[in-house]
C-alpha cells in the first residue's frame, strides 16, 4: 500500500534524515499535540520540538552545515521552503491544497535545479519526503502538467542516500502530449 511507503510521522522522516547524514542511531523521538509534532528527547533539559528545528539541529550535528545554505540569502531561502513544507504541505490535505502546492513549486522550479537554486539543501530533502505520498499518486498526465516538479523530484530521489526504502516513483522520459500547456 502507498501508505506503508509514506514517511508518515515526523520521527520516521527524521530517522531517514539521520541515516542520510550518516549519524549514529540513538536519538529518541516523541510526538506532541494533535498535529503529532516530533520532539527530540535530550538527557538534559527540555528537548527540541518541530520537524524543521530538529532537522536543522541534526544537520549541524553531522557537520553538514552547507545543507542549510552558505550565504544569508541561501539560508533564508532554505528556511522559507522548510517553513512551506511544515505549514502548507503538512497542513494541506484537500485535492485543491495539493494542486496549489504543485503549481507553486512548478513555477518556482522553472529555472532552478534545486529549491534553493543551484545547491542541494535540506529543503530538497524534506520537501521530497513530504511530497512522496503525493507524487506516488499522480497520473502520467499530472506528472507532465507539473513537469518541473517531476524533473526535480526524480532528481532528488536519485540523489545518493535520499530515497532509502521509499518506493521509486516512475517518470516517463518522452512526453506523451507535446502541446501539454
Amino acid at each position: 500500500m502507498a501508505a506503508a511507503a509514506r514517511p508518515g510521522t515526523g520521527a520516521e522522516e527524521l530517522a531517514l534524515l539521520e541515516k542520510l547524514l550518516g549519524l549514529p542511531k540513538g536519538n529518541k523521538y516523541g510526538v506532541q499535540g494533535e498535529r503529532k509534532v516530533p520532539v527530540l528527547q535530550t538527557n538534559n533539559g527540555p528537548g527540541l520540538t518541530g520537524l524543521m528545528t530538529i532537522a536543522a539541529h541534526l544537520v549541524k550535528q553531522a557537520k553538514k552545515d552547507q545543507l542549510l545554505g552558505s550565504t544569508a540569502e541561501e539560508k533564508a531561502v532554505v528556511q522559507q521552503w522548510l517553513e512551506y513544507r511544515v505549514t502548507r504541505v503538512d497542513g494541506g490535505s484537500s485535492k485543491e491544497d495539493v494542486r496549489i502546492i504543485l503549481k507553486d513549486l512548478n513555477i518556482h522550479l522553472e529555472d532552478k535545479v534545486y529549491l534553493a537554486g543551484n545547491i542541494f539543501t535540506l529543503a530538497d530533502i524534506l520537501m521530497y519526503y513530504g511530497l512522496h505520498h503525493v507524487m506516488v499518486d499522480l497520473t502520467v498526465q499530472e506528472k507532465e502538467k507539473y513537469l518541473n516538479v517531476s524533473r526535480w523530484f526524480n532528481h532528488i530521489q536519485h540523489y545518493p542516500g535520499v530515497r532509502q526504502h521509499l518506493s521509486n516513483v516512475i517518470f516517463i522520459k518522452n512526453r506523451l502530449y507535446t502541446n501539454g500547456h
Binding site: 524543521m52 536543522a56 511544515v86
Partner: peptide, 15 residues
C-alpha cells in the same frame, strides 16, 4: 545566525 532556539520559536510561530 539562527540557533536551535530561534529556529524552534520561528517554527512554533508559523505552525
Amino acid at each position: 545566525e539562527p540557533t536551535d532556539l530561534t529556529n524552534q520559536w520561528l517554527e512554533w510561530e508559523a505552525t
